[in-house]
Design a protein around this nucleic acid. Sequence first.
DNA 1: GGTGGAATTTTTGTATACAATAAATTTGAC
DNA 2: GTCAAATTTATTGTATACAAAAATTCCACC
Lengths: 215, 215
Amino acid sequence: MDIRRADKIAETLEQLVFSGAYSDGDRLDELKLAEQFNVSRTPIREALQVLVSSGMAEQIPRRGVFVRQPGPVELMEMFETMAEIEAACGRLAATRITEDGLAQLAEANVNCQQAVANLDHDLYYDENERFHQIIYRGSANRYLEKQTLQLQNRLRAYRKMQLRFRGRLDQSMAEHLEIVAALQNEDADRAATALRDHVAVQGEKFHRLMASLKN
Amino acid sequence: MDIRRADKIAETLEQLVFSGAYSDGDRLDELKLAEQFNVSRTPIREALQVLVSSGMAEQIPRRGVFVRQPGPVELMEMFETMAEIEAACGRLAATRITEDGLAQLAEANVNCQQAVANLDHDLYYDENERFHQIIYRGSANRYLEKQTLQLQNRLRAYRKMQLRFRGRLDQSMAEHLEIVAALQNEDADRAATALRDHVAVQGEKFHRLMASLKN
DNA sequence: GGTGGAATTTTTGTATACAATAAATTTGAC
DNA sequence: GTCAAATTTATTGTATACAAAAATTCCACC
């Protein structure tokens, strides 16, 4: 896929940052990374710029680039933004999603249901992600879709935490059905509200997420 | 401000692309740019990566980077996304904006009014931009604020076109008042709707924008 | 005149070398 | 012993050199 080594390195570094291999404020040493990846500093520097532009690291001129792990506040802000953007996708999708799109949503939900029955968190996670992506696509706005996918990707690691909690799967499932119903009725406001509430981190969800960050 | 030459070059290149100095599909030749800026290829390449990550150019491995000027479709998608995101800012700001924020909005509107009276498009443009930025800030969500500012910046050149049309200033002004009223009443839905309609490019606005792109 | 392919030229991607600035350490005065 | 200035070291930013792939040119052949 990638011919450029720098791109592969960027991908690997992203995953490393996501996985928590680096803490907030850690400096990404060009020389160390270069010998770690067995390349020169050049592709490393290009990879670092990718991290910087995605907001996962910060560059301070003549000082280096430092990883930026979002704290609780920024994390909440990102989830809130995600909720609003997904609501927007739902609003647009309500009048634009195709029959095929609705069918795909139904299919994803069947698979989700299956996962709930088997308490298969990983399967649920994958199908849930797909469910949401179908809605992004349904907005019939490629630009919005791309932006939303980016944020979804950025929050992936944290969403994974959330789904681990007891009872979350059942509730999430019910909300999916409400979302689909709104889309089928072409009710833009209802779809937007349903998606906003589904994605938002409030009440119990909030406390659970905060607690899980204490590690 | 910038110590890194690459950053300054990136900024200059961005403006060049915005100004229409390059057409869609033009290749950004590293060597030519290097001698044009009197630097080596290294800082040029770093600058190009910035353009790529902001979506203003596309990189094809082993081929080069090519400018991507949004066509009519993508432009409409970007405006639609902007409308939705600003609506989200308004929704959150309705219950969060401070008294000081409201005061700043009133002040910006006074200046806008002044500009309308004098038919001073440039002043109106600046104050209008400020008006919107106060609302982004009012959302009390720094992440959302930053994302919104980015898109606002990306659409700047095209918004400038829009305001040149006759009658647009008066209508825009009236919409500002409705937005402020909604925020003062802490009416989230009303604020969101008012902002969405204000920013959206529909009906006559749409045709005018399309016509102005024909150049 | 057109076509296919080898040779040449361009151009990107990476490595290395150098310059300039910031961090660390040493040295010296008090 | 402590603080500060000076020197050394480390690290980023840029320039140049080299490797590899793509684009172009040129020429034989049909």
